[in-house]
Amino acid sequence: MDQLFITLTSGIANGAVYGLIGLGLVIIFRSTDVMNFAMASMSTLAIYMALSLHGWGAGIIVALVVAVAFGALSGLVVRETLIRPLGQGKLFAALVITMGLSIIVEHLIGQFWGEQPQRFPQLIEGTVTVGNSNLLLQDLATIAIAACAVSGIAFLFTRTPLGAAMRAVAESAVTAEILGINAHKVARIAWALGMALAVLAVFLYAPKTGLTPVVLAPILFRAFAGILLGGLTSMYGAVIGGLIIGVLDNLAAAYISASFRDTFVFTIAVLVLLIRPQGIFGRQTFERV
């Protein structure tokens, strides 16, 4: 029972990371119809910068704030310089650009910081003993910080004029423009906010795995699975889908086989999507032909 509790808690911590990344992806997608495949590498770049700052003597919290700010700024710059000039409807071109940007950033990281894994400091050192097992305080911190971040996003979207504007643009950018909402301003905020959430997620996850230029590749893959499971158009679905993937992943590794953890998780996800293609919280849409 103790081991099950540890496994579930660790799975929730991992799922919180997947959920934060998925939430960032969905916020950008719903506001601009662009799936940012460069999010992983851009976030990793911000975390490498944080690692360098910490190595030069900055506190870990200062490094976190700088990394999140850099991630938000980089999202804004990419949107304004690479995505916005494409215009409306250039989804495939935007997809290719973000994938190409991801490769470029990963190469730059490898050239500047090297390809070898580097240790990243924990926010909170130590463990808590549960029965005969030890629970990382870092996992508890991850769950708490992710919960605060998601609560803040929920407040933003449901209780503020900016959130109402972002929801309006997500429903229909054309209608939002008619109502006097600046869709480009909303898109800029969405890219900055989505990237900030992704950087926070990597910051929480990196102490468990160390840093490499492609550290987020499998994490992004699982975040996408969480998005599809929860519903591509649902922000709540992205978070809950990420949590489900994280828990299933850990349970499979602990009680089935670490070699087949992804096979088990994605088999479950595919079965759910066969029954409900729009995801658990997604909305089914109909097109009149």
Rank of each mutant, 00 (worst) to 15 (best):
I12K: 05
I60L: 15
A67Q: 09
A253M: 10
Q88T: 15
T212M: 15
A225E: 06
G194L: 10
N14I: 07
A63Q: 12
R167G: 04
A147M: 03
A165Y: 05
T9M: 13
F264S: 07
L101T: 04
F203K: 08
A176C: 02
I245C: 07
N182Y: 11
I219A: 03
S31I: 03
S259E: 09
D33R: 15
A40I: 08
L45E: 02
R119E: 11
A252N: 04
L64R: 07
A258R: 13
L108F: 15
Q118P: 05
I245L: 04
V26Q: 02
Q88I: 12
T233D: 15
G15K: 00
S234G: 00
G59E: 08
L64I: 12
T233W: 07
Q3F: 10
A40W: 01
R261L: 02
I103A: 09
A72T: 04
I244H: 03
L136G: 13
V214W: 09
L91N: 13
A183M: 08
H184L: 14
E106M: 10
A190E: 06
I244N: 03
I145V: 15
E125L: 14
L193W: 00
I275S: 10
V66K: 09
P117A: 14
G152V: 06
V215Y: 07
T9C: 08
L220R: 05
V214F: 09
G19N: 04
I21H: 03
E80Q: 12
G59S: 15
I181E: 06
V26A: 00
I256A: 10
L53R: 09
L228S: 09
R261P: 06
L108C: 08
N14A: 07
Q3K: 10
E171K: 09
A50K: 10
G71I: 03
A38T: 01
S234V: 03
P117W: 10
P117R: 13
L73G: 08
A173K: 14
P121F: 04
L220H: 05
V247C: 07
I181F: 06
V174C: 03
G231D: 02
G242D: 03
T160L: 00
T81A: 14
T9L: 13
